[in-house]
Design a protein around this nucleic acid. Structure first.
Lengths: 142, 142
DNA sequence: TCATTTTACATCGTGCGCGATACATTTATT
DNA sequence: AATAAATGTATCGCGCACGATGTAAAATGA
């Protein structure tokens, strides 16, 4: 039996999985200068847009569980990039707030998207093929 | 300063990162029945296509470093799904080989792609938007 | 032939990513 | 008001994912 559907190229998820990891590697080179990781950068993107958000709102925005965000915030706190504050309206909520250092990082980060495009190696992954599998996916999902 | 390029939606990588994790969660539900993880499933896909490959070939195929694959193979070995064998041509190479159990898993796995499509929740992520960002990316990268 | 470089794999440390679980606060129910 | 259910966060354990480093075998080259 050949099981055509079990070939790597025909998999729904693999292209997304592979390309996201490859791009994150490129990001990491630039983020090292800021001393943060890619998931930490994503949390900062959310806070740079809207400061002072509860953990839950951040996790929903990034499609990440709170048990991923909570220790990540702890590390950002250790780096003096954010501060936590218990909600006065709701004692359960922990609001995350940028420090001055966290705000300053935004200016440094502003150049990252431009630098990134130069660094991405398109030869490693077949974008056209990825687009086709995305078209298929959109078709399947209505 | 607004820094339009620092908005989450305008990020090169985030859509890929988010959608791959969301789909992997769906995969994991089905893979639990086989007792394996998603990265382990990817390694098996490679071996089901071509059995008996050195670690390096598998890692290149999946765009994963060998220091990710090596311990993963070790866990698959513990599960009696694969065996390792030192290359006779080259003593440095470690060839990975499916066991009978590993071969049988293929039959069970054959239904996964079909089951998956029913389970994917398209509402959580805007596929059209992802496609647009992909079009932009293809444009940028020539 | 013998030293140098490259290659293939393994090990270590850190930070996710997530299912399972625990716990306190808030809301809903009776 | 007392009880039950839901919500928000934290903790734990395991398996990646990857940079850095180590080691042995093979290839290179003077």
């Amino acid at each position: 039996m050949t099981h055509e559907q079990l070939k790597l190229e025909n998999q729904l998820c693999f292209p997304f999985y592979a390309i996201s990891r490859l791009i994150i590697r490129k990001y990491q080179n630039l983020l090292n200068e800021l001393g943060i990781t890619y998931p930490q950068y994503l949390v900062l993107l959310v806070l740079w847009e809207t400061d002072y958000q509860p953990v839950n709102d951040i996790s929903k925005r990034l499609f990440l569980n709170t048990n991923t965000i909570t220790p990540l915030i702890k590390r950002l706190e250790k780096l003096k990039i954010v501060k936590k504050e218990k909600g006065q309206d709701d004692e359960r909520k922990m609001y995350v707030k940028l420090t001055d250092k966290g705000l300053q990082l935004k200016e440094q980060a502003a150049q990252i998207p431009y630098k990134l495009v130069e660094g991405v190696d398109a030869s490693k992954i077949d974008l056209i093929e990825l687009k086709i599998s995305l078209d298929n996916m959109i078709g399947i999902l209505k």
